[in-house]
Design a protein around this nucleic acid. Structure first.
Length: 179
DNA sequence: TAAGTGATCTCT
DNA sequence: GAGATCACTTAA
């Protein structure tokens, strides 16, 4: 039986949540039915001191949701064309979230949202069945050996310290034998 | 490698 | 209000 992740899962250390999201399934229900895709790549944005985080300069209308309780979707629009999907983590008033950068067969945060028809109208909603977008544990175990950690992407403004932190987690690509 | 695209934020 | 910037993608 798939187990839907709830607040308890998300209301923990952001790095732990990010790492453990690998291998879980992002499930979307819309007019086309239900699709479930395994999460393969994420990034953590953790706390007000994280210079790469939207919350670094304090609370604004956009990042307000990052200060909210865990388990809410934070979806924003960048570069005039891409919606980014994040799940809020940690306790209320502590600004943190995990960006879902890739799922099985769909690489790149902008492509994930496009593929699953995820837009800002889901922003601030809760990750549960009722919202049409949630995350399930389907029993897949991801070993530490399969997990790669690298610096985050597209955050050169974050400076040498925060820019180099290995807050990006991805499942190692398994090389297929040449056909 | 550079352009596209528009919301958001910072400064006037 | 104006200008710069941006947690990206695609086409060369």
């Amino acid at each position: 039986m798939p187990h839907i992740l709830t607040t308890d899962f998300f209301n923990r250390d952001t790095l732990a949540v990010a790492e453990e999201l690998l291998g879980k399934f992002l499930v979307r229900r819309n007019v086309n039915g239900i699709s479930a895709l395994k999460i393969t790549e994420v990034e953590a944005y953790d706390g007000h001191q994280d210079r790469a985080s939207h919350a670094y300069r304090g609370r604004t209308a956009r990042n307000e949701i990052m200060f909210g309780p865990a388990g809410l979707w934070y979806i924003y629009f960048v570069y005039g064309m891409h919606e980014m999907l994040n799940i809020v983590t940690g306790p209320e008033a502590y600004p943190a979230a995990v960006l879902i950068r890739g799922v099985e067969g769909v690489n790149g945060p902008g492509r994930v949202t496009k593929h699953l028809n995820i837009t800002r109208n889901l922003n601030t909603l809760s990750a549960r069945k009722e919202s049409g977008l949630w995350i399930e544990d389907r029993g897949i175990i991801v070993s530490k050996k399969e997990i790669h950690k690298t610096p985050r992407i597209g955050i050169s403004y974050a400076g040498p310290v925060w820019g180099r932190k290995k807050y990006r987690f991805l499942i190692t690509e398994i090389k297929k034998p040449a056909a």
